[in-house]
């Protein structure tokens, strides 16, 4: 730990004492924030993990259905069938404040029919495939929400952790060491003055006696 570069004066001593006090308070607050964030983060990350697994397996199924469908049909036909979707999907976003991190919540708004094509030129498999996509899609949005929340929290946690550590292992020890240095120096000065005064007094007394 390095001592701060300050002059050993009473003024600095007072200043540093004040700084130590606010550093301690800041450290406590940040630590509390870190704990709060961590609690929420753990909750979310567990959910994200199970969700991710579920989505990935289900999406695999949906893609398989779609593969079947596309192999049954002429590629150009398939493309025309899906060229102008009548379904529209929109999201409403709300944010919630967790420990001063704004995390998003999505609400999905879907309109129109996804099966929007002539039945004559398309296969029945396409219907199933699109329906399975539709099912997975709701989960996907949920997953997006949770992962984004986790990401936001992770970033905030990282900076908070760094701040806490900087205070705990750098700033506070440094200030403490400097405080000790200054008070030692001041005490030393005091002793040296007293000794000086005593010596002078002894000299004067010796002169008077002579």
């Amino acid at each position: 730990m390095a001592k701060l570069n300050v002059k050993p004066t009473r003024m600095e001593l007072l200043n540093l004492k004040r700084r130590l006090k606010s550093a301690n308070r800041g450290h406590k607050l940040l630590k509390d924030k870190q704990d709060g964030l961590m609690q929420k983060f753990m909750e979310i990350i567990r959910e994200a993990k199970t969700m991710r697994r579920e989505v990935e397996s289900k999406l695999g199924g949906a893609f398989k259905n779609f593969m079947f469908a596309s192999s049954m049909m002429h590629p150009a036909m398939l493309e025309t069938a899906l060229l102008y979707p009548s379904a529209t999907t929109e999201l409403e976003v709300e944010t919630k404040n967790v420990m001063s991190v704004h995390i998003p919540y999505f609400k999905i708004k879907q309109e129109g029919d996804i099966l929007n094509y002539g039945y004559l030129q398309t296969s029945a498999e396409l219907d199933t495939a699109l329906k399975s996509f539709q099912d997975v899609f709701l989960l996907l949005i949920k997953l997006a929400e949770i992962e984004k929340q986790a990401e936001r929290l992770a970033v905030e946690l990282e900076t908070t952790r760094r701040r806490v550590n900087a205070l705990e292992y750098k700033m506070i020890p440094d200030i403490k060491e400097t405080l000790k240095f200054i008070s030692m120096k001041l005490a030393e000065q005091e002793r040296s003055t007293i000794v000086g005064v005593m010596a002078i007094k002894a000299m004067i007394e010796a002169q008077e006696e002579a």
């Binding site: 993990k49 695999g60 593969m67 998003p104 997006a144 986790a150 990401e151 992770a154």
Partner: peptide
């Protein structure tokens, strides 16, 4: 805050990238 960028597995199947991403988040936090 927005947009959220989310990787989804391709038709070829999942490569575990999504889970790795979550692991990275934990590591970061």
């Amino acid at each position: 805050a927005l947009p959220a960028i989310v990787p989804v597995p391709s038709p070829k199947g999942t490569s575990g990238y999504g889970l790795k991403r979550i692991g990275k988040m934990v590591e970061r936090a």
